[in-house]
Every structure is written in C-alpha cells, then in structure tokens.
C-alpha cells in the first residue's frame, strides 16, 4: 500500500466550508499523513530537515490547497522554494524524490466551465498547474492529474458531500496503487471511471 503525504496549505482554513469538509473526511485515513502547513509554520519558518524526512517516508505527495490568483497560497510556494533543495530534490545528486508520485488537490471558487478557452479564466486548471507539474518532473516525480473541487461558491451541501466522498475514494485508489496510465488518461482525477 502506498503511503500518502498531504501537504495542506490554507491561510484561513477555519473559514473555508469546502476544505473543512474535505479535510475532515480524509485526515484520519490510515496510512495517510495530513500535514497542516499554516498551522505548523504560522511564522513561515519552515523546518526543512523535518520536511525532507516526511517526504522521504512517503510514496505519494499531495499538495492540497485552494487556488488563489491561479496559484497556491504563499506558504506552499515558500515550502517548494525551501524544501526542494538542489542536490537533494533535483540536480545531479538530487534523487531523493525519484519515482514518487505527486499531484495537486485544489478548490476553486469558479466553476469548471469558467476554466476553459471560452470561459472567463481562459485556461484549464491543468494549464494553470503547469509550474507544479514541471516542478514535480524536475524532481523525477511522476505528476498525476489534479483532483479539483470547483465552483465551491455554488456547491450545495449534497454536492459537497459527493465531492468529499470522491476525495476519499481517490485517496484510497492512490493507496492501492492503480495503474498510472489509467489515471493519466483523464484531465482531472474526479473523472476517473472507477470513482463514479
């Protein structure tokens, strides 16, 4: 069974209805480490060696965060800048993350319809997440499509419940280590046939 590390970054978690529901659902799943970055490093003073240890001890790394201005909250960027060191995560001797899997779990206020060439946001979330994809690739990790809960402003309680359920299923699927090519066939993990 694959072990999963969720690096969760939300500066105002207490006021996020969607993320509270998502996190509550998966945080106690066995074999999963839920790591709340903003709670752990409120002063942005990241313990790099501890973070490296965590990474080394897991097979799958998930960056779980809301989309803010088409990117992640600043602490997660800080985390990427500080923890993914040259000579450790990338570069000639940087092989610590090789062959691990990596993906983003995101929430967006706007609906999926807004994230396409015709929509207000012009690009898909996959395109907005390119920097993360390339970061993972440079570290020798296999980047999987994101799991995205979109249009959070309009989600009804029932819809939210369905999404959290799907999140848990996705986690379990990843733990079992299904074939990557099946997963990669979709734009979002939300579309994987096994989950629906």
């Amino acid at each position: 069974m694959n072990s999963i590390l969720i690096l969760f970054a939300h500066p105002k978690f207490e006021q996020s209805r969607t993320n509270k529901a998502l996190v509550r659902r998966i945080e106690s799943v066995e074999g999963l480490t839920f790591h709340d970055l903003y709670e752990r490093y409120p002063d942005f003073h990241i313990d790099i060696s501890y973070e490296k240890e965590l990474l080394a001890g897991h097979d799958i790394v998930i960056w779980h965060h809301p989309m803010y201005w088409y990117s992640c909250p600043p602490l997660l960027k800080q985390w990427i800048d500080l923890v993914l060191e040259y000579g450790w995560a990338y570069g000639p001797k940087g092989t610590a993350l090789k062959a691990k899997k990596c993906l983003n779990v995101i929430t967006t206020g706007g609906t999926r319809a807004l994230y396409c060439a015709e929509g207000r946001n012009h690009y898909s979330v996959n395109e907005f997440l390119r920097p993360f994809e390339q970061t993972a690739r440079l570290c020798g990790m296999e980047y999987l499509p994101p799991f995205a809960v979109m249009g959070t402003h309009e989600l009804t309680d029932a819809e939210l419940e369905r999404e959290t359920c799907k999140y848990e299923k996705t986690i379990r699927l990843l733990q079992q280590g299904g074939s990557s090519s099946d997963l990669k066939a979709c734009d979002l993990l939300n579309d994987v046939p096994d989950l629906n």
């Binding site: 939300h10 105002k12 006021q15 809301p66 206020g109 402003h153």
Partner: peptide, 8 residues
Amino acid sequence: HWDSEQMR
C-alpha cells in the same frame, strides 16, 4: 482575507 464565505 482569504474568506471564501464572504465571496460566496
């Protein structure tokens, strides 16, 4: 800041 509830 970052209060999605307000936006909703």
